[in-house]
Write a protein that binds this DNA or RNA. Structure first.
Lengths: 125, 125
DNA sequence: CATTAGAGTTGACAATTGTAGCCTGCAGTG
DNA sequence: CACTGCAGGCTACAATTGTCAACTCTAATG
């Protein structure tokens, strides 16, 4: 959950989460391993460690079948949103608007982005 | 600098940076120590370690006088901006606009914020 | 049923981070 | 000028993170 995210998801762990988020169903290690071994070049042991840590942290759930099937406990949106809020707290005095202002002045946004955002805020309420 | 930020500034180190950013002039350890000892409850040794690490990382510069005076090499804006971009890369597929969209839908922004942002984008270009 | 591949578990090890102590030399004070 | 406090530099140590190996036990396969 956004609020009770006890310990952060680390960079390596995030790669596993991303894979789980991209999938509808729970996945067995075999599948997770196949994908990440290829895309990340990680050894099976590494991947198993990351999964275990995510389970310990409570952000991945394991479901017992023949073999465990893993699925995310938090959604990508929940996590992104939590991480974003965390960034805002730490670097923007808790003001989301300061973050956006910073993006606007600092090549963070393309003209297209800005146009789209203008629309977004127009519709918004 | 935004780009060549080799190693990240950690949470504890960030507290030191914030103090330096808030000050015009370079500061001697004495001053840094006074402020952080009080606000953070850190031992002098801890503060000295943090400063050293920041110097090693190249984000704080030391200037020799009787005693070293310390000042930031990167500005707060540069760092915030870098950290924000990093977040966008890691969690929003590199699309700043997705971050903002996420803020808009998810109690991240107050009505006031939204009103202000609407103005911001109106003026913008 | 014996064999084998691999899931799950435990341990490991280096680098980073959070926190702090020790020692030495200098600078300011009486 | 002797004394003392503290800056600077070095060391330390536990927890976390990035990577991975070894071992055990089970399920699938011939």
């Amino acid at each position: 959950m956004s609020e009770n995210l006890a310990s952060k998801i680390t960079d390596s762990e995030l790669e596993v989460m991303k894979l789980l988020w991209r999938t509808e169903d729970a996945l067995p290690v075999t599948v997770i391993r196949e994908k990440l071994q290829e895309s990340k070049g990680w050894e099976p042991a590494t991947i198993k460690t990351l999964i275990s840590r995510l389970v310990s942290k409570g952000v991945v759930r394991q479901e017992k079948r023949n073999v465990y099937y893993y699925s995310p406990v938090i959604t990508e949106k929940e996590y992104s949103s939590w991480a974003t809020k965390d960034l805002i707290t730490r670097l923007y005095n808790g003001k989301a608007r300061d973050l956006i202002a910073s993006l606007v002045n600092s090549e963070g946004l393309s003209q297209d982005d800005i146009a789209e955002l203008r629309d977004m805020f127009k519709v918004e309420e």
